[in-house]
Amino acid sequence: MKQLFFVAVGVVIGFAAAHRIAHTPGGARLFADVDARTKAFTDAVADGYRSREAELRNDA
C-alpha cells in the first residue's frame, strides 16, 4: 500500500512539473516534438497493421 502511495505521489508531481514546463517556450517546443514523434510512430504502426491485415486476407 505504501508503494502505491508513492507511485501516486510521483504521478501527481510529474503532471504538475509537465504542466509548468509546457508553459515555457522551450517546453512547448519539446511537447510539440514529442507529440509529432508519437503521432508518426502510431501512424506507422497503424499502417503496418492494415498492411499485414490485407496480406492475411489475400492469403485466405
Rank of each mutant, 00 (worst) to 15 (best):
D47E: 12
A36L: 12
R37K: 14
G10K: 03
D59A: 15
L30A: 15
A22R: 13
N58P: 00
S51G: 12
K39L: 12
D33F: 14
A22T: 03
P25M: 06
R20S: 10
F6I: 01
H19E: 10
I21H: 08
D59Y: 09
T38E: 04
V9G: 07
A60Q: 12
G14T: 05
F31E: 02
A36C: 02
H19G: 05
A17W: 13
E55Y: 02
M1N: 10
D59Q: 15
N58K: 15
R52P: 00
H19Y: 13
G10M: 03
D43Y: 00
Q3F: 13
L30P: 00
H23S: 08
Q3E: 13
K2I: 08
T24S: 13
D47A: 12
V45E: 08
A54Y: 02
V34K: 02
A46E: 14
P25K: 04
D33E: 11
A8M: 14
R29G: 03
E53T: 06
H19M: 05
G14N: 10
D43N: 03
V7M: 12
V45P: 01
A32R: 05
R57T: 10
A17L: 15
F15S: 01
I13Y: 02
R29W: 09
R20Y: 14
A54W: 05
R50P: 00
P25H: 04
F41A: 15
F5R: 09
K2Q: 12
G26K: 07
A16P: 01
I21S: 05
A28T: 06
T24A: 06
R50F: 09
A60W: 09
I21D: 05
K2V: 09
